[in-house]
Design a protein around this nucleic acid. Structure first.
Length: 244
DNA sequence: AACCATAACAACCGCCAGATG
DNA sequence: ACATCTGGCGGTTGTTATGGT
């Protein structure tokens, strides 16, 4: 964005906040290029959008991050790297900018100075890692994913050895078609152990209970294209309680 | 009280990808 | 196929608040 001549910069005044808020409430979000004119603001479209998303939008949560939020940030950052918008998307009311600021001012140092502990208990202190950046998948519109023919199966096997037979399945979840990715990071439902916060998971972690596997299967063709072991990713510092 | 260092957070900038003509 | 527009993202900077000396 080239800086437009005469466009106001810097901190927003209360009057500007009111104008922007009224404009978005009247016309809705989007068409940000029209917002400065509609609102009577001498601001660029990006500035208006940012102000709305980071400050004026309803339900934005401000102030101290709760312990479970911090825990979630650390876990998700381990998984996603600096994908602040994705991380913020899992923290209701938090903005990408807010999460990023919190990380840079509170958590980045903890990451740098961490030393591994002798025992294997999960640490509140995150370790510096090279984030695994999931390679983006692309699907053609004719893909089975968009036709609802493919199924993602998320399963967790019971810990222990079962000679000559596969481990019993503790739980599984299937997502049909394009719906699976919408549920991938949801911590509701049967498989809420994945990426959930540590809150509510008090007690000793079960070190044996991590043969999580994800497998993507296409029923019709019978291929199995994707699988990963959440244990090797080190995503899950503590075990969720087995479903009762 | 004055000064300085640091923390915290708001805002800007440049870039990118998707949509559209 | 290409150019342009738009929304969105992450990195970085600027400003203010706070604490220490």
């Amino acid at each position: 964005m080239k800086g437009a001549i005469g466009v106001r910069k810097g901190a927003w005044t209360e009057e500007e906040n009111v104008l922007l808020k009224k404009c978005v409430e009247k016309y809705g979000e989007g068409n940000w290029h029209q917002v400065p004119h509609r609102a009577g603001l001498n601001r660029c479209r990006k500035s208006c959008r940012l102000r709305w998303l980071n400050y004026l939008k309803p339900n934005i949560k401000r102030g101290e991050f709760q312990e479970d939020e911090v825990d979630m940030i650390i876990r998700l950052h381990k998984l996603l790297g600096n994908r602040w918008s994705l991380i913020a998307g899992r923290l209701p009311g938090r903005t990408a900018n807010g999460v990023k600021n919190y990380w840079n001012t509170h958590l980045a140092k903890r990451v740098v100075h961490h030393k591994p502990k002798e025992d294997n208990r999960p640490s509140k202190c995150a370790t510096k890692v090279t984030a695994i950046r999931p390679h983006p998948w692309t699907f053609s519109k004719s893909s089975a994913w968009f036709k609802g023919k493919a199924t993602l199966v998320a399963s967790r096997t019971l810990p222990g050895e079962y000679p000559g037979q596969p481990s019993p399945l503790l739980l599984s979840h299937q997502y049909k078609g394009s719906a699976w990715w919408e549920n991938l990071f949801n911590d509701s439902g049967a498989d809420e152990g994945l990426l959930t916060s540590r809150s509510g998971l008090e007690g000793q972690p079960d070190a044996n209970s991590w043969p999580w596997e994800f497998a993507m299967e296409e029923r019709q063709n019978g291929w199995n294209e994707l699988s990963f072991d959440a244990d090797s990713w080190g995503l899950l510092g503590a075990s969720p309680q087995a479903d009762t």
